[in-house]
Amino acid sequence: MSDITRDDVAHLARLARLAVSDAELDMFSGQIDAIVDTVSRVGEIPDDVPPTAQVVPQTNVLRPDTTEPSLRRDVALAEAPAAEEGRFRVPRILGEEL
């Protein structure tokens, strides 16, 4: 088995910003454990196989450095849950992103 525990799932939920309930933790930990167990089959693949991250056939796709119209501020803020002084209003932020 892949050994994904309930605590592991709680940690994943925290990292992913999901305030999951205890009942969900019970349900998800069993399911995620089973799924991870199944998909772990890829572990059989030898390490020397090179990875493929994307299948785009081109390189060096660049945009010219010329300005384009931005959104109107009122349009951008219209969908915000809260706005104030031309800015997006959000709940207090815990701690500085240093």
Partner: peptide
């Protein structure tokens, strides 16, 4: 918000991907 706004399959996949 993410807890209330996402359904079970979405949460499941987000956690599997995070893992």
């Amino acid at each position: 918000t993410r807890e209330a706004g996402f359904g079970a399959e979405v949460k499941r996949r987000i956690m599997i991907g995070t893992h």
